[in-house]
């Protein structure tokens, strides 16, 4: 499996002034099987839009998204998306949320319940099956959302700042949980975050995007084995460099201003 982004671009129409605002301009990227690639960039630079395009949710954009050479133009079971705000169905129990995709496929109740139970076990969430999302902690809700996506066994998992609204302790727990999960399943993950520490802790590669219109500025290859030491010299060096690029981006004049 591999993902290729070729000259990906997106402009939004500004209704009021009837002009086009470029959000992303020609992003090229290749993600190989089993990699975790992080995308970091200044806030509002179009990272989420990038994931929406790859997931097939956006209708109009420039360039191509190729998954194993096949162009993606609409949502498919091959690409899963995990949202920052969890996006769980509040009227469904945890188990019913996790089963949603299988239910859509038309799988019978016993069968999908059995598969969901496996994921609930793998995710360490036994005993909460019949709880509703509002009765679960933020970390647990995001685990349910991840399980709901992974149960479809997508070839590519997109995560849009999945731990962005968690407190820092839960965030660290979830990062470690994700690493454990990768040892178990070897998913290919494209991970958007604004948190440089998180990117350095998790990723095989980090792609740094510029501010709007986003293009890729720099790619870092991280080779330190997992589990990583968050405070090692190697981690710190990369962190310092990434933060430096992002700061430079913030203070440089915006091309959209003229």
């Amino acid at each position: 499996m591999h993902l290729e982004l070729i000259g990906l671009g997106k402009t939004f129409a500004d209704g009021k002034q009837s002009r086009e605002i470029p959000a992303i301009s020609s992003v090229n990227l290749r993600v190989e099987q089993g990699q975790l690639v992080s995308i970091v960039g200044p806030s509002g630079c179009g990272k989420s839009t990038l994931l929406r395009i790859i997931s097939g949710l956006e209708k109009s954009f420039e360039g191509k998204v190729l998954l194993d050479g096949q162009e993606i133009v609409k949502p498919t079971n091959d690409v899963g998306l995990v949202f920052q705000q969890y996006a769980l169905f509040p009227w469904r129990t945890m188990c019913e949320n996790i089963e949603f995709g299988l239910e859509i496929m038309g799988m019978c109740k016993e069968e999908r319940r059995a598969i969901a139970e496996k994921y609930i076990h793998l995710f360490g969430m036994q005993g909460f099956e019949d709880r509703y999302p509002c009765q679960l902690s933020g970390g647990m809700q995001q685990r349910v959302a991840i399980a709901r996506t992974l149960i479809m066994n997508p070839k590519l998992v997109l995560m849009d700042e999945p731990f962005g609204s968690l407190d820092s302790q839960t965030r660290n727990d979830m990062q470690e949980f994700l690493m454990d999960l990768r040892r178990e399943r070897n998913d290919t993950i494209l991970f958007v975050t604004h948190n440089v520490d998180e990117a350095v802790f998790l990723s095989d590669r980090i792609v740094v995007l510029s501010k709007r219109p986003a293009k890729s500025l720099r790619i870092f290859e991280l080779i330190a084995p997992h589990p990583r030491d968050r405070t090692s010299k190697e981690s710190n060096d990369i962190r310092r460099e990434v933060i430096g690029i992002l700061r430079q981006e913030r203070i440089s004049p915006s091309p959209a201003a003229n």
């Binding site: 097939g56 998306l81 169905f89 949603f100 995709g101 239910e103 859509i104 996506t149 479809m152």
Partner: peptide, 19 residues
């Protein structure tokens, strides 16, 4: 966002309406 989530799980228009 719930509609988006359903769509990424391959829901059709009919699924989105009823589910």
């Amino acid at each position: 966002i719930l509609i988006d989530a359903a769509r990424t799980l391959n829901a059709t228009q009919k699924d989105i309406f009823f589910k």
